[in-house]
Amino acid sequence: MTEGLITLALILVKLGMVFFVLLSGAAYLVLIERKLLGRMQLRYGPNRAGPGGMFQPLADAIKLITKEDLIPAQADKVIFFVAPGLATLTALLAFAVVPFAPPMTVFGREVPLVVCDLNIGVLYFLGLSSLAVYGVALGGWASNSKYALLGGIRSLAQLLSYELAMGLSLVPVVLMARSFSLTDIVLAQQNLPFAVLNPLAFLIFLISVAAESKRIPFDLPEAENELVAGFHTEYSGMRFGLFFVGEYINMMILGAMVTVFFLGGWQGPWLPPILWFLLKVLAVAFLFIWMRATLPRLRYDQLMHFGWKVLIPLSLVNVLITGAVLLAMQN
């Protein structure tokens, strides 16, 4: 009984730490993005609220909480209420299987630094990434707006298309690590990260992750020159804030997955493991921000053409080549 209570307490403590880091990290990732985009575009970012603009996330949160929460008269109110929370919740739950450091010893007890070390962590991540589309699609449909509906339909088609390529790009990772556990995948990269051993899978996964996070050049569900604001056009106040925060939490989650699957996770010389993990996640986030400042938005037909006719065939060929090489090495 005591052993079970200790295990439960450890899980709750790790959950609380993960939620705090993710929510505060998402808030300050917004500030970092606005600062970096300002510098890349030769202008100032936020610099008024607090020293160097450090209180800008707090000011934004107060603004969103105090804004009037409008609901369209003809909206499906139940789904309209639920959709933003669903989009954020799926992003938060995905971090439950991410190992951010090796196990540490606390009071003579070895504690794994992962909320839940599932032996099918890859399948859990893919399953939650499939569920993430529902929040966006239902939010667009429940708003009873043509622009929001078009944004939701675009998002549904885009996420389903690029999820196939993303899943296929992870097959070589599972083959090389011989495990679905994210901890085992990190440990399998002790000598070389999988980004070096299989650069094509890394590139396909990185592009698919950018499309899954709906970042430029893949932000077709929110194309403001066509759809006003896309699937969240009719949302205001904190419900819009949930969509907004969910997007940045999702960017951190996907950055963590790139780190775990291809960049060796927490492994690296000299620095503490958890610091290596954070630096790699921030490097992926910086790449996404850099892409936003540099690349133009694709047309929708180009987006779908690239996913179905380029990425998916490439990922299938890569699975066959990786399997053949690993089989030849065994023999």
Rank of each mutant, 00 (worst) to 15 (best):
L37Y: 03
T88L: 15
A148W: 03
R48W: 12
P103C: 08
A165P: 02
T259S: 14
L303T: 11
L160N: 10
W266T: 09
A157V: 12
V21L: 15
D76L: 07
L278V: 15
S129T: 13
P172W: 01
K146V: 02
R43S: 14
E234T: 00
L182Y: 08
P57K: 01
A26G: 06
K67N: 08
A101K: 07
V98L: 14
A73Y: 09
I120W: 10
I249Q: 06
M17I: 15
A157I: 08
A83K: 08
A223P: 10
R178K: 15
A132E: 15
L242A: 07
F231V: 00
F194L: 10
L200W: 05
G121L: 11
I79A: 15
F288R: 00
S155H: 05
W308E: 03
L10D: 12
F288A: 03
V209P: 04
A27L: 13
N318T: 03
P296N: 04
A210E: 01
L37C: 05
L311Y: 04
A61G: 00
W308K: 04
L149V: 00
M329G: 08
P46T: 09
R239W: 11
L93Y: 04
Y124C: 09
R109P: 10
R178C: 07
E68M: 11
M252H: 06
M257I: 09
G265D: 02
G25E: 02
V106C: 09
F55P: 02
V186P: 06
G50A: 13
L37N: 06
A49W: 12
F277W: 00
G241R: 02
D69N: 13
I289W: 06
L316G: 01
S169G: 02
L23V: 06
V228P: 00
G264V: 13
K146W: 01
L326Y: 05
P172C: 09
F288S: 00
L37G: 05
G268I: 12
P221K: 02
T7P: 04
F107P: 04
L29R: 05
L254A: 11
G45S: 13
G230T: 06
L128M: 14
V30W: 02
F218G: 01
Y124K: 11
Y162K: 04
R43D: 12
F100W: 14
A87E: 07
L287S: 07
N318G: 03
L242R: 00
V171A: 13
S315A: 15
L287V: 14
T2Q: 13
V171D: 09
L113G: 08
V317D: 09
M166G: 10
R292H: 02
V30Q: 07
Q41D: 10
L295D: 02
A201L: 03
G167E: 12
D69Y: 10
P103G: 05
N318K: 02
W270A: 14
L126C: 13
F244H: 05
I207Q: 01
I79L: 14
E33N: 07
A142E: 03
F80M: 09
A211T: 03
P72F: 04
V209D: 04
G140R: 05
I6Y: 09
A91R: 00
A148V: 04
V82L: 15
L279K: 08
L23E: 03
I65S: 12
Y44S: 14
F243A: 02
T322P: 02
S315C: 07
F261C: 11
V317A: 15
A83G: 10
S161Y: 04
A148D: 00
D219P: 09
F262S: 09
V319C: 14
